[in-house]
């Protein structure tokens, strides 16, 4: 597999730290001006920090295991050769594997299309990659509850399949 895109992770990281530093400085200034808000702000921040820290290390570990044990070549091979309902299911499933941010998936999907994968499957794959990630769903379950998660996932899957098929139709009709 060719690694055609390098989104400069180091630069991104520096930018994120700068954002954090700026927002922290902004918050400190605000809290100095409005000392009566200190308790509320610190309490909310500490609460969400605790909630995230009990779950994130485990999520990171799972991402690491998937990266090591599930090779990209296998992902490409399975997605490229399938079609029909099996292909849709596989696209959903593979997209849901924890494999990094969405911009990693664009070159992957492009490579798959050029290898003969269906456009509809790739749209489904990209959408699943974007908003249905297995470890992330644990986070959704914890923060938003089972009913919300189940409904959102169910609706998303149905609509994403419809979107994939529609986009493929549009692309084909423009070509012919």
């Amino acid at each position: 597999m060719k690694q055609s895109q390098k989104p400069k992770p180091r630069k991104e990281t520096i930018k994120s730290w700068l954002f954090f530093a700026a927002s922290l400085a902004f918050t400190i200034v605000l809290l100095v001006i409005f000392p009566n808000r200190q308790t509320a702000v610190i309490k909310s921040s500490r609460q969400i920090f605790m909630e995230m820290i009990v779950i994130l290390p485990a999520v990171m570990l799972l991402i690491g295991f998937f990266a090591v044990w599930v090779p990209n070549e296998m992902v490409i091979k399975l997605l490229g050769k399938t079609s029909g309902i099996k292909g849709i299911g596989l696209s959903l499933l593979l997209g849901a594997l924890p494999t990094g941010p969405l911009y990693v998936a664009f070159p992957l999907a492009a490579a798959l299309i050029s290898k003969g994968a269906r456009v509809s499957n790739m749209i489904i794959f990209l959408s699943a990659w974007a908003c249905i990630k297995i470890p992330q769903e644990m986070v959704e379950l914890q923060f938003l509850g089972a009913r919300f998660m189940a409904l959102r996932l169910g609706l998303t899957i149905v609509f994403v399949i419809i979107m994939g098929v529609s986009i493929e139709k549009i692309m084909e009709s423009k070509v012919t």
Binding site: S44, M52, L56, M60, G64
Partner: peptide
């Protein structure tokens, strides 16, 4: 590595949520 990369964003969210709920 993933954790370190995502850490600033996590901390940013912590600060923003504090600001949001506090202010």
């Amino acid at each position: 590595k993933t954790f370190i990369r995502i850490l600033p964003t996590i901390l940013l969210i912590v600060v923003l949520v504090g600001l949001l709920l506090g202010f």
